[in-house]
Amino acid sequence: MMKRFYYIVSLIVVTGWLLVAQSASAQQLFRLTQYFQNPIVINPATTGIEGFMDVKIGYRQQWSGLDGAPETYYISAHAPLRTNSSSTGLRHNALRISDPSLYDQFDGNTRYGASNVKHGLGGYITSDNQGIFAQTSGFMSYASHLPLGNQLRLAIGVSAGVTNQQIDISRVTVIEPNDPTYLAYRNQQGQSTNFDLNAGMFLYSDRFYVGYSAARIFQNNLYNDSEIAAQQQLTHFGMLGLRLNLSTALMLYPGVYIGYDGANPVTYDVGARVKLKDIVWAGLSYRNTSTIAGMAGIQINNTFNVSYSYDYGFSGINNLQSGIHEITLGLVLFNSRQVAPYLW
């Protein structure tokens, strides 16, 4: 009982700190190459999908050869709220067997019991800086994971929080000082703060996952001036992936990640990752912006893991920059059952 109390208190403290600590950017949502490392930012329905508290700290640097190049920082934490289920979740234990269906002979469930509804709680902060633009968001997220069968669950989630966008007016030079857009930004001291909502669904089993989410549901106005029509864009995300056991030690994860905000062309990532004994992994992906990415990661011990990715584009701007670097540090907490990650 006392252990469960400490678990819940830790989860509330971490997620509460994440929301309170938020403070200040650009008008487009940032994009991560290692989206699977920080899924609750994309789809709140993934909150609590892991069998432990999953904490991620990440940094992404784009176009490192250019002045004012984009930089992104994030920290997230989420975990399932404990249930009274006595299920052992053998299928997701770190020890794997050649035929996963044999697990069903021992327990007819997946991830804490198929007969139980699982709840997840989490939160995140993101800070995105692009030249004179800056955007910081702080959100709390919740998801309910509903059993649809022995090996299938549907998660429905929502996240709510605040986004602050800033423009450094002191670095802006305009030809026409009476330009309405410039005056609107100056009157707001170059910033706007809005409350917003994201929502998503995530269908998953031991073999696959597919998810849809929508961000910026409120489509807030960017200016207080009602004569200027400028709104945040409702953004749609989709994720699809397979989990294939190639052997007792090797797993393959092919997947697709899609994003569309209504103002720009659809973007998508197609790739695959292989993981050896839940310890090391490596992968490749292609983005339809003429970009390829290589990535790799390692589970250092039962608590710490780290991963790195490098994007290289084939567009003309690559003559001026050296690519995109992204590094993620992960912490696995309260994993007493040694459950293997689902999305890692």
Results as ranks from 00 to 15, higher is better:
Lys3Cys: 12
Arg4Asn: 15
Phe5Val: 15
Tyr7Phe: 11
Tyr7Gln: 05
Thr15Asn: 08
Leu19Cys: 10
Val20Met: 11
Ser25Trp: 11
Gln27Asn: 13
Leu29His: 09
Leu29Lys: 08
Leu32Ile: 08
Tyr35Lys: 10
Ile40Lys: 00
Ile49Lys: 04
Gly51Trp: 01
Gly51Gln: 00
Met53Ala: 05
Lys56His: 08
Ile57Met: 13
Tyr59Met: 10
Gln61Ser: 13
Ser64Met: 15
Ser64Gln: 14
Ser64Gly: 15
Gly65Cys: 09
Ile75Ser: 05
Ser76Ile: 03
His78Asp: 10
Ala79His: 01
Arg82Gln: 06
Arg82Gly: 07
Ser85Lys: 04
Ser86Thr: 12
Thr88Lys: 14
Asn93His: 13
Asp99Ala: 09
Asp107Asn: 12
Gly113His: 03
His119Met: 15
Gly122Asp: 07
Ser127Tyr: 13
Asn129Leu: 12
Gln130Pro: 06
Phe133Gly: 07
Gln135Val: 10
Ser137Asn: 11
Gly149Val: 04
Gln151Thr: 14
Leu152Pro: 03
Leu152Asn: 05
Ile156Asn: 02
Ile167His: 05
Ser170Gly: 07
Arg171Phe: 09
Thr173Ser: 10
Pro180Val: 07
Tyr182Lys: 12
Tyr185Leu: 14
Gln188His: 03
Asn198Asp: 11
Gly200Met: 00
Phe202Gly: 00
Leu203Val: 01
Ser205Ala: 04
Asn221Leu: 06
Tyr223Glu: 07
Glu227Tyr: 09
Glu227Thr: 15
Ile228His: 04
Gln233Glu: 13
Leu234Ser: 01
His236Asp: 04
His236Cys: 05
Phe237Gln: 05
Leu244Tyr: 04
Tyr257His: 15
Ile258Gly: 00
Gly259Gln: 13
Asp261Leu: 11
Gly262Ala: 08
Ala263Lys: 15
Lys275Trp: 06
Leu276Cys: 04
Gly283Leu: 05
Tyr286Met: 06
Ile300His: 00
Asn302Thr: 14
Phe304Gln: 04
Asn305Thr: 00
Tyr308Asn: 01
Asp311Tyr: 09
Tyr312Asp: 10
Tyr312Val: 13
Leu320Asn: 13
Gln321Met: 06
Gln321His: 14
Ser322Ile: 12
Ser322Tyr: 15
Glu326Val: 10
Ile327Ser: 00
Ile327Glu: 03
Leu333Thr: 02
Gln338Asp: 13
Val339Met: 07
Ala340Gly: 06
Leu343Cys: 04
Leu343Ile: 12
